[in-house]
């Protein structure tokens, strides 16, 4: 996976899926433009301001709440390249693996708008704005393979699941 660079959007603990994308947007006709609604209740305007490659940085339990896969999909569609959080909620974590959103479990010193560089292969996060570096763990083997194959359905297509 290549080196990523993007601007940070900072959040606190327990960012739930209703905040990421509200339930009333979860209709089939929105599936191709979910990005328009991200964080609309808690950070109005963010959906329009997000730039391709931007990175979300959060505290504990990011993505808690509903099983809606719309949540990681909406972030991907918005151009978010990865989410860095101290921990992730379980279903959000699994969903992200399958839709191809990179998640990094790491507690990092980052302020809103900082420029970040992520080196997935080295397990390094660098805050270019304050010069600090942070290490993170790679995914375990089974999960790395799942991700590098393009998600569970790809494994099934190839007859490997």
């Amino acid at each position: 996976m290549d080196v990523l660079k993007g601007k940070a959007w900072c959040f606190g603990d327990h960012v739930d899926t209703d905040q990421i994308i509200p339930a009333e947007r979860l209709v089939a006709e929105n599936l191709d433009h979910l990005n328009e609604f991200i964080f609309e209740k808690v950070r109005p305007g963010m959906a329009q301001a997000v730039q391709k490659g931007d990175i979300i940085v959060a505290g504990r339990n990011f993505g808690c709440g509903s099983s809606r896969e719309h949540a990681p999909r909406s972030l991907l569609q918005a151009g978010i390249s990865c989410v860095v959080a101290e921990s992730f909620a379980r279903i959000f974590f699994r969903n992200s693996l399958n839709v191809g959103l990179l998640l990094i479990e790491c507690s990092a010193d980052v302020s809103e708008g900082d420029l970040l560089e992520v080196r997935p292969k080295e397990g390094k996060l660098i805050n270019l704005s304050n010069g600090m570096e942070f290490d993170f763990q790679q995914y375990p083997e089974f999960i790395s393979e799942l991700v590098s194959s393009g998600g569970l359905l790809e494994l099934i297509r190839e007859g490997r699941f």
């Binding site: 099983s67 896969e69 699994r94 969903n95 399958n98 099934i156």
Partner: peptide, 13 residues
């Protein structure tokens, strides 16, 4: 609970 893609995987396998 699982996501929709995982549900699709179970539909299939």
């Amino acid at each position: 609970g699982v996501g929709s893609t995982e549900a699709a995987a179970v539909f299939a396998t």
